[in-house]
C-alpha cells in the first residue's frame, strides 16, 4: 500500500492539538515514515494546497465566516476527515459564550472599530460537513492520537470510547471529587481517554473531552442539588469546554426546573 496522503489544518483554534502531534517526539519519525504529509502549514514549507488527501486532520471550531469555506474545501479534497480536539468536535472554549451575541462581544473585546475579524458563534465541524471520526480532548491525548493513526494505517476505523472518566479515575485509585470534596466533577458525563488527568491531580474534571453518548443530565443535576450546589455553579463549570454539547438541551432545562 502506498503511503496515505495527509493534511493537517487549523480553523479558529489555539493550535494546541497540532502542537500535540509535534509533541509525539518519540514516534514522530515512525509517523513521518508511515504517512506522506502533503499539507501542514504550521509545521512545514512547500505545501501542496490543492492535492487530494487520504486523511485530513482538522483542528479548531468554525468561529469565523472564512472557516466555513476553508472547511468545505478540505472536505472536498479528503477521503477521511477527522475532527481533532474538542473545538472541532464540540465547539470547545470558543463556544463557551455562544449565548452572547457576537457584535456585543466584539465591541467589548476590541472596542468600536473592528474590521479585521468576521466572528460568528462557534460551531463544531459536524454542523457544516460530514465528519468521519471525532478525536476529542483539550488538547488531544498523544496516545489516543497515535492509536487512531495506527488504526487508519491498518485500514481500520479507530474504536469509539463510550464510557466515562470515572472508570479511569477509579482504576487510578483516586479519591472521588464529588464524594469526598463535594466538588462539581464532570467525570461521570465526560468520555474517557485522558486517563482521568485532572482527578489524578486532585482537581475535578472540567469535561474537556466532551460528553459520552448517553449523558444523564437530570441525574447529574439532581445529584449536585442534593449536595446543595447551586445550578449556576454547575452550568458555569460545564459551559467551559463543550457547551453546545450539553447546554442547550436537557441539563439547562433540568436545572431550571429543579431550582424552582
Amino acid at each position: 500500500m502506498s503511503k496515505p496522503k495527509i493534511g493537517i489544518f487549523g480553523l479558529t483554534s489555539c493550535a494546541g492539538d497540532q502542537l500535540m502531534i509535534l509533541n509525539c517526539e518519540d514516534q514522530l519519525i515512525d509517523l513521518a515514515n508511515a504517512v506522506d504529509i502533503r499539507d501542514w502549514e504550521m509545521a512545514k514549507t512547500n505545501n501542496d494546497e490543492e492535492c487530494e488527501l487520504d486523511i485530513a486532520l482538522v483542528e479548531g471550531s468554525v468561529a469565523q465566516v472564512r472557516d466555513i469555506e476553508n472547511l468545505k474545501k478540505i472536505r472536498k479534497r479528503s477521503k477521511i476527515l477527522v475532527a481533532i480536539g474538542t473545538c472541532a468536535v464540540w465547539g470547545g472554549i470558543p463556544a463557551m459564550k455562544n449565548d452572547v451575541p457576537r457584535d456585543i462581544m466584539l465591541k467589548e473585546v476590541y472596542g468600536d472599530k473592528v474590521e479585521f475579524i468576521e466572528s460568528k458563534a462557534a460551531q463544531p465541524l459536524s454542523s457544516f460537513v460530514k465528519v468521519d471520526y471525532n478525536l476529542p480532548g483539550c488538547p488531544i491525548e498523544k496516545d489516543q492520537f497515535l492509536q487512531m493513526m495506527a488504526s487508519f494505517l491498518n485500514g481500520d476505523m479507530p474504536e469509539i470510547l463510550n464510557f466515562s472518566v470515572c472508570s479511569e479515575c477509579k482504576m487510578k485509585e483516586n479519591i472521588c471529587q464529588i464524594v469526598y470534596k463535594q466538588e462539581v466533577c464532570c467525570g461521570p458525563l465526560t468520555v474517557a481517554g485522558c486517563g482521568a488527568r485532572c482527578p489524578s491531580h486532585n482537581v475535578p474534571c472540567s469535561g474537556c473531552h466532551g460528553p459520552i453518548e448517553e449523558v444523564h443530565y437530570d441525574a447529574e443535576a439532581k445529584m449536585f442539588q442534593r449536595k446543595g450546589i447551586k445550578p449556576e455553579e454547575i452550568i458555569r463549570k460545564m459551559q467551559v469546554y463543550a457547551a453546545p454539547a450539553w447546554m442547550p438541551e436537557k441539563l439547562m432545562e433540568e436545572l431550571q426546573h429543579e431550582s424552582k
Partner: peptide, 30 residues
Amino acid sequence: GKRCLTCGSCSMVCPTCYCFNVYDTLNLDA
C-alpha cells in the same frame, strides 16, 4: 435508572466484579 449515572465506579471498586473487555491496539508500522 433515573438516579444512576452509569459511571461504573461501583463496579471498578468491587472485589468480585470481574468483567473485562478485549481489544487490539495497533502500531504505526501497520
